[in-house]
Design a protein around this nucleic acid. Structure first.
Length: 487
RNA sequence: GGCCCGUUGGUCAAGUGGUUAAGACACCGCCCUUUCACGGCGGCUUCAGGGGUUCGAACCCCCUACGGGUCACCA
């Protein structure tokens, strides 16, 4: 039981799920799945001031939307709960006390202002800001004096001197830190609540996490956590620090690089499958040459040893390509259902349409999905189907159906006739009508197709003609040709 | 600034001492399509720099440069 792989994702609920966080969650999930282990979701809400329930809900929703499920933790339960830091105060208190009693931690009566001032002056002198250790050896009298004053205290971890802290990182190899470079750090705030570095170590140990996969920004925190493990005599877990996701300018991805939150991509109409696929390829690479993978396939292929050490630039163009692949290859009903909200929002269709003309909407999606990077773009391509008053895109289009050209009225009249005569405007009709018109009028080629295209859509480019014809239907076509002729 | 991590084409990257240095996105060209897109084919461009080690270095070692992370009573 114990030797089974157990990983965890422990977001702090202080905002939306970041694209980098999503990737961390993904890697954890994949590692667990690949090894047949456990994936645990814990909420790291030690910072009460910044944590919100809304944020927790959003993060969970995004994870679920992506298809990243966990089998222990928040919402699903397990034997090692509770899974929110704020619900574990007694646990932390106990371990804090143990450390205090053994002298491995001590009470520090310095105020936040004092330590801040100390740091400032160190920085000014070009020194590394680090706690001086002022309270590390207070006498009983000094402590009593502070207490009498009513001073609050934090708890600091007593960092051993001259000690190498060796971290065996699954992706980076051996990383060594010197304990002398780590000042006595705070493990409990003045209000008695634990600080992140302490809480994670305790939680990860108690929850029997075997491998900690997280972002590289945590690498320099790791020695502190290792120190805590060692102070308790606990076995340290394995670590795997995944490099960061960068913006185009190679700095850490942030708002100014564009969308950074999973829900922003969801809102634009990126498919969860595509985001998963893209994220997996960012910092990890499969063995073959294939690039399109389902979650299931990734679960089978993923191993930590193929995670790359170097940071990756977020390339929206590649995401777009992957997303386009999924938009084209996925089941049409699925894509249609996901597209409908954008059509509704644009006021192009209403709820009745969705109910009564679903197949028609499906046709529209089918005709345009080939052009899309993401679903919300569909509204840019479907205008021609919703505007009975054909508007000419440009002079070029206008020229195409200039009535003074002999073939234009000829083609239009014949085409309209055929449409009027047809009892059903279906795919069969749409495919054969041009041949008939050609026979009737003797017009062929561009003069035939472009004339009809522009008359119906006002544009020189767009979906396939058979699609357009079916979507417009008898009435729509006749109306458009009439206005074209009368112009 | 200290500590730590990193550096293969514009981007993601394979590669672990001997390779014509994969593949994908992007870009360019051609084809398909009587339109656009999709799709197909082809092309362009890479081992940060300098020293070693070695018969031989993208791969091993050192230095430099550059980029990033972290040094909170944030996580």
């Amino acid at each position: 039981m114990n030797q089974l792989e157990k990983v965890r994702f422990a977001p702090s609920p202080t905002g939306h799920l970041h694209i980098g966080g999503a990737r961390t969650a993904l890697f954890n999930y994949l590692e667990a799945k690949n090894k047949g282990g456990t994936f645990l979701l814990r909420i790291e809400d030690t910072d009460a001031a910044r944590s919100t329930k809304e944020s927790e809900d959003v993060i969970i929703e995004d994870l679920r939307w992506l298809g990243i499920d966990w089998n222990e933790g928040i919402e699903v339960g397990g034997d090692f709960g509770p899974y929110r830091c704020t619900e574990r105060p007694d646990i932390y208190k106990k371990y804090l006390n143990d450390l205090l009693e053994e002298g491995k931690a001590y009470k520090c009566y310095c105020t936040a202002e004092e330590t801040e001032a100390e740091r400032e002056s160190q920085r000014a002198k070009g020194e590394m800001p680090r706690y001086s250790g002022k309270c590390s050896n207070l006498t009983k009298e000094e402590i009593d004096a502070y207490e009498a004053e009513g001073r609050e205290h934090t708890i600091r971890f007593r960092v051993p001197t001259d000690k190498d802290i060796v971290i065996n990182d699954e992706v980076r190899g051996e990383v060594i830190f010197e304990s002398n470079g780590v000042g006595d750090f705070i493990i409990a705030k003045a209000d008695g609540t634990p600080v992140y570095n302490f809480a994670v170590a305790v939680d990860d140990h108690l929850m029997e996490v075997t491998t900690i996969i997280r972002g590289e920004e945590h690498l320099s925190n790791t020695p502190r956590q290792v120190l805590i493990y060692e102070a308790f005599g606990w076995e340290t877990p394995k670590f795997a620090h995944v490099s960061l996701i960068l913006g185009e300018d190679r700095s850490k991805m942030s708002k100014r690089h564009g969308s950074t939150h999973v829900d922003q991509y969801r809102n634009k109409g990126y498919l969860p499958e595509a985001i998963i696929n893209f994220l997996a390829l960012l910092g990890w690479s499969p063995e073959g040459e294939e690039e399109i993978f389902s979650l299931k396939e990734l679960e089978e292929m993923f191993t930590l040893d193929r995670v790359s050490k170097n940071p990756a630039v977020f390339d929206i163009k590649k995401l777009n390509w992957i997303n386009g692949q999924y938009i084209r290859a996925s089941d049409l009903d699925y894509i249609t259902k996901l597209s409908i909200p954008y059509l509704l929002e644009a006021g192009l269709i209403n709820d009745q349409d969705v109910e009564n003309r679903y197949d028609w909407i499906k046709l529209i999606v089918s005709a345009t999905r080939g052009n899309l990077d993401y679903l919300s773009q569909i509204t840019d391509h479907v205008g021609i189907f919703f505007n009975d008053e054909v508007e000419f895109e440009d002079d070029k289009a206008r020229k195409v159906i200039d009535l003074n050209q002999e073939h234009v009225p000829l083609v239009l009249k014949s085409f309209k006739e055929k449409v009027e005569e047809a009892d059903k405007i279906d795919l069969d009709f749409a495919k054969t009508v041009f041949k008939k018109v050609q026979k009737d009028t003797g017009v062929k080629g561009k003069n035939l197709f472009m004339t009809v295209r522009v008359a119906l859509t006002g544009q020189c480019q767009g979906p396939e003609m058979p699609d357009i014809i079916q979507i417009l239907g008898k009435e729509g076509i006749i109306k458009r040709i009439d206005t074209a002729i009368n112009k």
